[in-house]
Write a protein that binds this DNA or RNA. Structure first.
Lengths: 334, 334
DNA sequence: CTGAAAGCGCTTACAG
DNA sequence: CTGAAAGCGCTTACAG
C-alpha cells in the first residue's frame, strides 16, 4: 500500500498553498476555475482521500449520526429498524455521514451518553418514541440535534412518522364497509405513541361511520402470548367478527390462537394487520394489511436531521403515507 | 451547557504541563502518584471528557470498528446479527470503541470501502462468510484488521464460529439413537460455509453410526418457499421419517408444508432445527433445536479483533459450543 | 518524574 | 483569487 497522500503533499506537488487545495476540495471560498481543475485532476489521478478525522477536528464535527434503537425489541420492530437503517444509511452516505448504532433502554442511556460525551455523533435518530420521552429529554439536555422516527408527545421535537392514525382509520373504515361490525383491536402497549395513534384512528372510524364502537373488543395493553390468547378468547366471547392486530407479530399469535380454537379465517373471523412484513408470508391465508415504506421513513428522517445539523430549517413534522391491501383474510366466501 | 474542558484548561488550573495531564489520563509514561491523583480529582470534579476526535487524529486511530452485514439478510439472520451486534457492542464499549454498521453485497462493497477510505474504522467484523470470500480479500487488500463471525474458507483469516459441524453431528447422532433412520436435511445454500459444515456433521453422524446415508434426502441448495415445499414432497416420497431444517425460517416453512399435507409431527415425521429463535415460539409443537450463544459470539469476535488491532497476538480460530434441546417435535408418542 | 515543542491533517479568519 | 499562520485538542519522542 502506498503512503496516504495529505493536502500538504498535493500543495507541494502543485506549487500552491494548502489553503488553496482545501478550497478546491470543499468548494468553499473563491477559487479560480483553473486551479480548481488542476487540483481535482491531481486528486483524481493519485486517488487522494481526505482524512476525515482531521476534518472532524478542524470543524468540530464528527460526520457521524447515531441511530438509537431500544434494547428490548420484538422481531417486527427489528425488521422495521433494519429497513429504516437502510434508508438512513443511504441518505447519510450521500451527505458524507456515517451511521453509528446505539442501543438503549429507558433506564440505561449509558451507550448513548458515551457517544455524545466522546463527540462521536453530530445528531441522533430515535427509532422508537414512548410517552415518557426520556430519551428526547436527555438529548435535549445534551443539546444534541435529533429527529424521532415515530411521533413524539413533545410537539417541539422534529418527527417523521407514518400516518398511523389515518392508516388505521382507513383500514377500519374499509372493513366496516365490507360489512363486519364487531371489530376487535388486539395488541400494543399504549405507552407507545404509535399504538395510541392507531387506536385513535380505529375509534374515529366508528364515529365517522356512525356505528357503535365496542369498547369490550379493545385490548391494547399487551403483546405477550398470554395477553393475546386471552384477548382472542374475550373477543370471541364478545361476538367479534373481525380482528385487527396491532402488528404482524401479534397477528401471527392471533392466527395461531384462532386455529387452535378451530375458528375459520375469514368466514368466522376476519383478520387484518400492520406492517405486512415477512412474518405474514408463512400464513396460510393472505392477510389484509397496512404497509409502510420503512426505507423512505429512514431516508426522510435522516435528511431532516442533516438539515437541522446544517441549520437548514427543517420541517417540524412529516407524515408519510401508507398502503392498504385487502386480501383473503377479510373476504368472506359465500 | 458549560464550555467543554480541554487538557489545556486542566494543565493551567493545576499548574502542570499538558504532557503531564495526558499521561495522568492515559496511564502511559512515568508519573508520580500524587500528580496523577490531583489530575484525576480535577477531572472527576469538573466532569472532563477527552475529545476523542483529537485523540484519534494524534494516534491515527478512529476507535471505531465496523460490523459488516449483508444487505440480503433473512429474518433468521437478522435476529442473529442483532444479538451478535449486542455482544460486539458490549465488548467494544468496554475497550473504548464504538461500532459502525456497514451493509454490503458481494457486488457492492462501496459502503465498506468508503468507511476505510475515510479512516473511520480500525478494524472490521464480518457477519457472514461465503465461499467466494470477496470481502475477506478486499479487506486484506486494504490492510485492515478483521475477524469473521463464521468460518472462512481462507484459513489464514481470524475466525470465530459456533461449532456447526459438531453441533449438527451431535444432533443427528441423537436423532439416530432415538430410532429414526431416514433423516432428511433441508435448506441452506452451500455457498455459505456454515451450511457446508452442518452438512458435513450430518454425513459424519451416519458414518460414525455405521448407518446408510440417504443422499436422496439431502436438499441443501435453497431456502425459498418453493424449494422447501418441493424438498418436503421429495423427502416424503423418499420415505423420510425426520427432517432437520437448516434454520428456523426453513423450519417454519417445513412445518407449514407438513401441515398442509396433513402429516402429523412428531408421529409421522420428526422435526429439528437450528438457532431456536423467536420464530419457533409460535410453533404448535415445541421443536427440537440446536441453539448457540450469539451474544458470546459477538463478544469473542470483538475481543479477538481488538487484540489484533492492538497487536496482541489473537488466537487464529475460535470455536464456541452449542446446546441441543430435544423436544416434542422429535419424540414419537406410543 | 516533568515539560517544551513538534506533530496528527485538516479549516478558516485575516491580510494581501 | 491566493497564501501564511493560527487553531482544532490531543499524543509522544526528546531532553532534562
Amino acid at each position: 500500500m502506498e503512503e496516504k497522500l495529505t493536502i500538504d503533499d498535493i500543495a507541494k506537488a502543485l506549487n500552491v498553498s494548502k489553503t488553496t487545495v482545501s478550497r478546491a476540495i470543499s468548494g468553499k471560498g473563491r477559487i479560480s476555475e483553473g486551479t480548481r481543475a488542476r487540483v481535482e485532476a491531481y486528486i483524481e489521478k493519485h486517488n487522494y482521500k481526505p482524512n476525515s478525522i482531521a476534518k472532524s477536528l478542524a470543524e468540530s464535527k464528527s460526520y457521524n449520526i447515531g441511530f438509537v434503537m431500544p434494547k428490548d425489541f420484538t422481531i417486527t420492530d427489528l425488521t422495521f429498524y433494519q429497513k429504516c437503517l437502510w434508508g438512513i444509511n443511504q441518505v447519510a452516505v450521500e451527505n458524507d455521514y456515517d451511521v453509528l448504532v446505539s442501543m438503549v433502554a429507558p433506564d440505561d442511556l449509558s451507550q448513548l451518553s458515551r457517544l455524545i460525551e466522546n463527540r462521536k455523533i453530530d445528531g441522533a435518530i430515535l427509532g422508537r418514541t414512548s410517552s415518557t420521552n426520556v430519551i428526547e429529554r436527555f438529548l435535549r439536555s445534551q443539546a444534541l440535534p435529533f429527529v424521532t422516527v415515530g411521533s413524539s408527545v413533545d410537539s417541539s421535537v422534529l418527527q417523521v412518522d407514518n400516518d398511523h392514525e389515518a392508516a388505521c382509520n382507513e383500514l377500519t373504515t374499509k372493513l366496516l364497509k365490507n360489512g363486519v361490525r364487531n371489530i376487535a383491536l388486539i395488541g400494543g402497549d399504549t405507552q407507545y405513541i404509535v399504538n395510541r395513534n392507531r387506536k385513535r384512528g380505529f375509534i374515529r372510524a366508528f364515529e365517522n361511520a356512525d356505528l357503535q364502537l365496542h369498547e369490550e373488543l379493545i385490548f391494547t395493553e399487551g403483546n405477550s402470548q398470554e395477553y393475546v390468547e386471552n384477548a382472542v378468547d374475550e373477543a370471541i366471547k364478545n361476538g367479534a367478527d373481525c380482528i385487527i392486530a396491532i402488528d404482524d407479530d401479534v397477528c401471527v399469535k392471533v392466527i395461531n390462537s384462532l386455529e387452535m380454537r378451530g375458528i375459520k379465517i375469514p368466514n368466522e373471523m376476519g383478520i387484518a394487520s400492520f406492517y405486512n412484513s415477512y412474518l405474514l408470508e408463512n400464513a396460510k391465508v393472505p392477510v389484509t394489511a397496512v404497509s409502510f415504506d420503512e426505507i423512505k421513513l429512514g431516508q426522510v428522517s435522516c435528511k431532516t436531521l442533516i438539515d437541522q445539523i446544517n441549520q437548514e430549517e427543517p420541517i417540524k413534522k412529516v407524515l408519510l403515507g401508507y398502503k392498504i391491501e385487502l386480501k383473503a383474510s377479510t373476504m368472506k366466501q359465500k
